[in-house]
Computed example of a mutant assay.
Amino acid sequence: MSKKIYLVGAGPGDIELLTIKGLNILKKADVVLYDALVNPKMLEFCKQDTLKINVGKRKDYHLKKQEEINELIINYAKEYEVVVRLKGGTPFVFGRGYEEVRAIKQAGYEPVVISGVSSTTSVLENFMIPSIDREFSDAYRTITGHDTQRFSEIITAFHPRENLVIMMGVHNLEKIVHTLLEKGFPSSMPIAILSRGTTQNAQQLLFTLEELKHKEKSFFEEAKKLTPAIIFVGETLNATKVLLC
């Protein structure tokens, strides 16, 4: 029977949103390779002698390339019994988790995925924003905003009853706003920047596309400091106005 290697979702940031299953395997871990967005307090659940390795990747600053992370996982599995790859959110949602699964399988080990709470839904709920609301929307689409060319190719048109949940897009906020307006999104469309959701530093900024269109360059430079952040676009934000009153 091949040795197991664990890919554990750490959730969106709030330490209490780590699943019980994830907690239990962390307590047994001999090695933990963790992401930049993982709440460091989660590492306190590990044994005193657990080897903890930061392999975090943030925009323009990668401690390790993905290929190097894959190699580290395999090398530690050769030496230690319980190896855990601790990933922000949940492993397969914008987490490159399946690349690690392939590497683990190719090395002859058995990958075990322990799902985490995804920020794509939990952060919205943290700010009392429904991804679906019967009055305003029937669907939501989750997409990354780090590649504006791909974003433009995927978002081809506006649908009044669909919300957009844009991950990793705050550095391209200005381009995203212009793209949405070019695709026919109304200038009155509400848009929210949801920064550091589920943490003590959570912050919500509400605008319309028209308001953001006329912001100075300096605003968008300052907005980059809000990362990690989700950009939410949709009429469903109007459902929150009652709560904000």
Rank of each mutant, 00 (worst) to 15 (best):
S122A: 15
K175Q: 08
K175S: 11
T148S: 06
S122C: 05
H62Q: 13
S115V: 13
E99G: 11
H178R: 14
S152T: 07
F158P: 02
E100C: 10
A107Q: 08
M168S: 02
S122T: 12
S137M: 06
A103D: 05
S115N: 12
E135V: 15
D138P: 00
I53R: 06
F151R: 01
K175A: 08
A103H: 05
G169M: 12
F158K: 03
S122R: 03
E162C: 14
H146E: 10
T90L: 05
I176G: 10
L164V: 07
G89P: 08
A107G: 05
Y140I: 00
L181W: 06
V112P: 11
S131I: 14
E68K: 11
Q66F: 12
A103R: 08
L63H: 05
V55M: 03
I193D: 00
T148V: 15
S188K: 15
G108W: 10
P190F: 11
A139D: 02
P111H: 13
I176C: 14
K64C: 13
S118R: 07
I132R: 13
A103T: 04
K175H: 04
V123Q: 03
P160F: 14
R85Q: 02
L72C: 07
S119M: 01
R134Y: 04
F158N: 00
A157C: 13
L51F: 08
F136K: 11
N163T: 10
H146S: 05
H159T: 08
